[in-house]
């Protein structure tokens, strides 16, 4: 009896790992091995040493591009939060049906490819597009250039990334027990104070999850800033692509990738200490 029980327990502990094995092997082969190769290339190409890192960390161009990348990611995250929070709140207050309707509208943009959405913004914001037409109709004779500016690339990235923010915050808001709000009200907390002391802290995990996801995804954006952004505001991913495609500087490109990865991991690490990474998965 005792024997079979322990055998069962052993099976129980082994089983999840067995189930995970295909994924683990897949990730190791197609994710870890390439990553190690990239790390190796960054210290061996074109010759062994840390010259690539020295270049990345001291060159003015690289510093500028990295700062711009993190600045853009921060800006996009803030915009997503400003847009996403009220919308998620709306979804949590309306009927289930209406919430599903809004959710459908938000996720619909997921079904369209990045490139198509990027080009759609080009059409909307273009010189002969509806936005410029509207501004002219409203009496602005010389509308400011919209396309190929920081404005257009930020707008498009917010559009692409906002769903991540909304869904994270919505999930948390939905779970908030309404009786908590009612009891807060019975204690005399209304309006601003109810929001600041009760609702905001309760939704904080959703904000943190959404922000980290949006921020990290935004760090690696490539096509959208290249096609819509201003030439002066380059993102790290674009510069990495350039190093490899134009200069065949595999080592330098790898070093930049590793720096970007390390900084991202540091951010995730800070997040983990504060909130716990496991929260990211709901």
């Amino acid at each position: 009896m005792g024997l079979s029980l322990s055998a069962l327990a052993e099976r129980k502990t082994l089983w999840p790992w067995l189930l995970l094995a295909p994924l683990t092997i897949y990730l190791a082969l197609f994710f870890l091995v390439p990553l190690v190769e990239v790390a190796l290339m960054s210290v061996t190409e074109p010759r062994p040493g840390l010259a690539n890192y020295e270049k990345v960390l001291t060159g003015s161009l690289y510093r500028k591009v990295f700062l711009n990348t993190f600045g853009t990611a921060l800006l996009v995250t803030l915009c997503c939060l400003l847009v996403g929070y009220p919308l998620a709140y709306l979804m949590s207050t309306v009927s289930k049906r209406a919430a599903m309707g809004i959710l459908l509208l938000i996720t619909m943009s997921f079904w369209t490819s990045f490139l198509v959405r990027t080009y759609a913004w080009m059409v909307l914001l273009g010189n002969n597009g509806p936005v410029v037409w509207l501004m002219q109709t409203l009496g602005i004779a010389e509308p400011p250039p919209l396309l190929f500016t920081r404005f257009s690339s930020t707008l498009a990235m917010v559009h692409i990334l906002a769903p991540y923010m909304i869904m994270n915050i919505y999930t948390v808001m939905q779970k908030i027990d309404p009786s908590l709000i009612r009891s807060a009200e019975s204690m005399g907390a209304y309006g601003k104070s109810l929001f600041r002391h009760i609702y905001l802290p309760l939704t904080a995990p959703g904000i943190a999850n959404g922000s980290v996801l949006v921020f990290v995804i935004c760090l690696g954006f490539y096509v959208t800033p290249v096609l819509l952004g201003s030439p002066r505001e380059q993102m790290a991913a674009g510069l990495i692509g350039n190093q490899i495609e134009q200069f065949l500087a595999f080592g330098l490109g790898s070093a930049m990738s590793i720096v970007l990865l390390v900084v991202t991991l540091v951010i995730l690490g800070i997040y983990h200490r504060r909130f716990g990474l496991d929260k990211l998965y709901g």
Partner: peptide, 18 residues
């Protein structure tokens, strides 16, 4: 305003008057 990187892109911005 644009340093173009692809042939199709160059046609598009000229054709659309960007």
């Amino acid at each position: 305003r644009v340093w173009w990187t692809g042939g199709a892109q160059s046609t598009q911005i000229l054709r659309d008057g960007e």
